[in-house]
């Protein structure tokens, strides 16, 4: 009886569909790894924006397995007029943003993670809004290793990144919204 109701209203298929979407996004997130010499660029991701937002963000983990330090000196994106390296700092209880002038050092045999509330790639002057499931093309220029082009996956606006995506975050937010609509 209940099952019949589910089939009739299409909720069943919507639930199945959302699981498929989650599985797809998770698998593609896992697969996003880029290699440039001894640098591994792992799980680049971004957040959805509204159509009014002029800026967006991209976060990424950079692993240097080599014996020499490198430096991320410049970033570019196909989705914005300009991209810069940015840092969020807490000055007492005041949130401040500032651009990073001399790039980000990637020390030898270590990893640097750009993440929410810290260093990030800022997309300035978005050409169009970023929607969940889209990709953002990013060019990373390293002082020694040179240039690599990567693709960052866009998660929900409030996502905490690929690691948290399967627990809580943007995707769940959207599922919850859909669940509300079905009631």
């Amino acid at each position: 009886m209940l099952l019949n109701y589910f089939f009739r209203t299409g909720i069943f298929f919507k639930i199945i569909f959302s699981f498929v979407v989650v599985a797809f996004i998770q698998s593609s997130a896992v697969a996003s790894e880029f290699q440039l010499g001894s640098l591994t660029i792992k799980d680049p991701w971004s957040r959805a924006t509204s159509s009014h937002q002029m800026s967006g963000v991209v976060y990424v983990k950079i692993i240097n397995s080599g014996n020499h330090a490198d430096r991320l000196i410049k970033v570019e994106s196909n989705r914005s007029k300009k991209a810069t390296l940015h840092d969020m700092i807490l000055d007492g209880d005041i949130i401040k943003m500032h651009s990073i002038k001399n790039g980000i050092e990637i020390p030898a045999n270590s990893e640097v993670e750009l993440e929410p509330g810290a260093k990030h790639i800022m997309l300035m002057g978005l050409k169009t809004k970023l929607d969940r499931g889209q990709t953002v093309g990013i060019a990373l220029h390293f002082q020694h290793a040179g240039l690599i082009e990567i693709k960052a996956l866009v998660f929900g606006a409030g996502s905490r990144g690929p690691k948290r995506e399967n627990i809580k975050g943007g995707l769940q937010g959207d599922q919850r919204k859909n669940a509300h609509r079905n009631h």
């Binding site: 957040r47 509204s50 009014h52 937002q53 002029m54 800026s55 967006g56 963000v57 940015h86 969020m88 949130i95 943003m97 929410p116 509330g117 990030h120 800022m122 997309l123 606006a157 409030g158 996502s159 905490r160 975050g169 943007g170 937010g173």
Partner: peptide
């Protein structure tokens, strides 16, 4: 809303 990093985190 133009805040790209901190505010989305707080809202999330």
């Amino acid at each position: 809303t133009f805040c790209p990093d901190a505010c989305p985190t707080a809202l999330a």
